[in-house]
Design a protein around this nucleic acid. Structure first.
Length: 420
RNA sequence: GGAGAGAUGGCAGAGCGGUUGAACGCAUCAGUCUUGAAAACUGACAAGGGUGCAAGCCCUUCCUGGGUUCGAAUCCCAGUCUCUCCGCCA
């Protein structure tokens, strides 16, 4: 949500930022609406003031005058009603525009329409070489009889999978390893949040009103969370947080549910893109002046997982056109997948500034008043895709999978996954 | 699903048609006292918005949305959520 005061004071600047997102100027339209709103608002407030005055005289008036006062108020009320009807319509229009425009990019963000303009920040690890032809995760998984796409298709349709046996445990091990690391080493508070949320929460993080097509909706008017970012960030929905509780850092391992309506035909094979996948999410709520540093810290928390797993990856700074709706700056972490011979996204870490906090009215009490928090979120990491990366990068010629050292304790001491 | 109770400021909790934006308390902040702290005492302390150079003035908000009334935190209707008991159930 954008700050109307910022637009009033910097209309040209606002439009310039929108242009970086390849959007047309909006300030003129917004300010015209805002101006007419304020004219109407002022006169309706004057009328309300008059009405109050008359009412306060009522008790001390003669009976003969009371009738007259009643009539006066009646007339004023009609005018107020008509003005406030107009006001409501204008307000709705302003709100819809303000809540449908994406966050303004940080000055450091490279300008460009899509991922081609993303900026490489760093590359870590060697691209692994194999003395045999490495298989894709779905072939490895099916050969081991630990991934079942066919039965999942019968039961649930496309973009679902059954993980079985050691793969099911591997997924659990990965998630536990990540949670342990984030809570113990990095001070995040573990949370097991609701997986179904109401409109207000989905609006708060920016999924609504524009992106309802990406979400599953229940017949009880709940939304299935597309990421734990939604319930974690909304831990501060309509809340004034005590300064002493900042920075607030939360992590959660949840399933994520996405309709993938816009991705028909993309990544249909394997478990890269599923309607349901699990992810360990990181969310921070911090004071405004701390959010830049917090983003770097969060990125470091996420990449440390890949370092420990000894997977090769690179970090990209997303371009203005490739960033998500609520973000003002985003790093993507991409892990190397041998079967595709390329890096694929495994985490996205974003600083949203006060954009989400405005939508959910999340503030903290500072010495000079209540201030909107800054919110950040990042995958730490996508568990399904981490499993893919491990399976493909740790595969052996005989089709078995070596368990990464740090996961061996979580796998009950097992060092290799092979056909039973 | 059935019966009942409730929703008020950061928290707790009065008020149940007319200076009530809201008592008392806790928390917080500032000050006095103190070498310092504690205690005690004094004072400040809801949010959002409009208007104005400013001081200020004004409007809205006591869960949400309607309604009654000259006037609503207070009365009526609908909804949401919470709690208690019964039933069902992982």
């Amino acid at each position: 949500m954008h700050d109307i005061n910022f637009i009033r004071n910097n209309p040209d600047n606002f439009d310039k930022f929108l242009k970086l997102r390849f959007l047309k100027p909006h300030s003129k339209k917004i300010l015209d609406l805002d101006k007419s709103k304020r004219v109407i608002l002022t006169s309706s407030q004057d009328l309300r003031s008059q009405r109050k005055n008359i009412s306060s005289q009522f008790a001390s008036s003669q009976d003969s005058e009371k009738l007259k006062l009643q009539e006066e108020v009646h007339l004023i009320k009609e005018q107020i009603d008509s003005l406030e009807k107009k006001l409501f319509i204008i307000d709705e229009e302003i709100h819809l525009i303000l809540s449908s425009l994406p966050n303004l990019p940080d000055p450091e963000v490279p300008v460009g329409k899509d991922e081609d303009s993303n900026k490489l920040i760093k590359t870590i690890g060697e691209i692994p070489s194999f003395d045999f032809n490495p298989l894709a995760h779905y072939d490895l998984g099916e050969n081991l009889q630990m991934m079942d796409f066919d039965q999942a298709a019968k039961v649930s349709g496309s973009r679902f999978v059954y993980l079985k046996n050691d793969f099911a445990r591997l997924e659990r091990s990965i998630a536990n390893f990540m949670l342990d690391k984030h809570t113990t080493d990095f001070g995040y508070t573990e949370v097991n949040p609701p997986n179904l949320v109401k409109d207000a929460a989905a609006f708060g993080t920016g999924q609504l009103p524009k992106f309802s097509d990406d979400l599953f909706k229940t017949n009880s008017d709940h939304w299935l969370i597309p990421t734990a970012e939604v319930p974690l960030t909304n831990l501060h929905l309509e809340t004034i947080t005590n300064e002493k509780k900042l920075p607030a850092r939360y992590t959660a391992w949840t399933s994520c549910y996405r309709l993938e309506a816009g991705s028909a035909g993309r990544d249909t094979r394997g478990m890269i893109r599923q309607h349901q996948f699990s992810k360990v999410e990181l969310v921070s709520l911090v004071k405004p002046e701390e959010s830049n540093d917090e983003l770097e810290r969060m990125l470091n928390c996420a990449t440390s997982i890949l370092n420990d797993l000894k997977l090769s990856y690179r970090v990209m700074l997303l371009s203005s056109g490739d960033m998500g709706f609520s973000a003002k700056k985003t790093y993507d972490i991409e892990v190397w997948l041998p079967s595709e011979s390329k890096y694929r996204e495994i985490s996205s870490c974003s600083n949203c500034g006060d954009f989400q906090a405005r939508r959910m009215n999340a503030k903290y009490k500072s010495t000079d008043g209540n201030v909107y928090l800054h919110t950040l979120n990042g995958s730490g990491l996508a568990v399904g895709r981490t499993l893919i990366a491990i399976v493909e990068n740790y595969q052996n010629k005989d089709g078995s999978i070596t368990v990464p050292d740090v996961l061996v304790p979580y796998m009950g001491g097992k060092k290799t996954i092979c056909l039973k």
